[in-house]
Design a protein around this nucleic acid. Structure first.
Lengths: 133, 133
DNA sequence: ATGCGCCTTCCCGTTACTGGAAGGTCAAGC
DNA sequence: GCTTGACCTTCCAGTAACGGGAAGGCGCAT
């Protein structure tokens, strides 16, 4: 099938599929006129990539996961390790964002938000010393 | 003072300060030999930017916040609106990451993670139908 | 004259695409 | 046979916010 059908089947934009070929994640065939041709297996790989990307795995992690997926003898421990590292990153990011949220919501709550010019948010950004409470 | 001192005072790398000049956030003077010169006020602005960036505001938001900061007649409501929008974005991102974390931790927990090749993580990525529980 | 630590500009690389231009291919309709 | 339209191709540029490094100028001490 052509790239449009592969796009429909995998849920990935055609542009993205071409990009994945560029970086070596998929290797579709070519017809005589230069068009890419995708097998069902190619589409399965693309759907795998779409799912892995939607879970936040990087392209390089996807490459590794795809390699493990296609290696019938891989150890599940290898996969688990990648997923666990990714989970760690997500949890650190959540913690960081929660810290930002706490800081920002404190500032937003303290700002009366009317026409007056005095603003605790700007004062904080400017480094005016203040207690966190 | 020169860029090194401004860097030390503001906590921003010299490269970042030059970049901020490129995008018009600061406008340091120049000496006869072409070196940038920073006033205390410049350093204060740089520190403001460093703080705003560390809270996750984008460069364009920083530009607006800086404009409001330097406008003695601004309404605090304008600042609050920007901060509130940013807070919304942070909360959406947290929710998204929490969703990913839930999904991934489920997968990681279900993977026995030993030398055996069968792996629920890869099965999920490949689209094997399964119940979320 | 040499070395050192500053400073300058400029360009490339990062992540994972997205948009768009310029142009080839194929089937249908007139 | 010609055109239209929907495909397809490659290549180039841009995104956010810098970081790395090259090539070279400046100022001071040895």
């Amino acid at each position: 099938m052509n790239i449009k059908s592969a796009s429909a089947l995998s849920g990935l934009p055609a542009k993205t599929i071409r990009y994945y070929e560029d970086v070596g994640l998929v290797r579709p065939g070519r017809t005589a006129n230069g068009y890419r041709t995708f097998t069902e297996a190619d589409c399965h790989k693309l759907a795998f990539l779409a799912r892995a990307r939607s879970l936040g795995f990087s392209i390089e992690e996807c490459r590794t996961l795809l390699g493990l997926y296609e290696d019938r003898d891989r150890a599940s421990a290898d996969v688990k390790e990648i997923a666990r590292q990714h989970l760690d990153r997500i949890e650190r990011k959540i913690a960081e964002l929660q810290g930002l949220r706490a800081m920002l919501s404190t500032l937003v709550d303290r700002c009366h938000g009317d026409g007056r010019p005095d603003c605790p948010i700007l004062e904080d950004l400017a480094g005016t010393p203040r207690m966190p409470g």
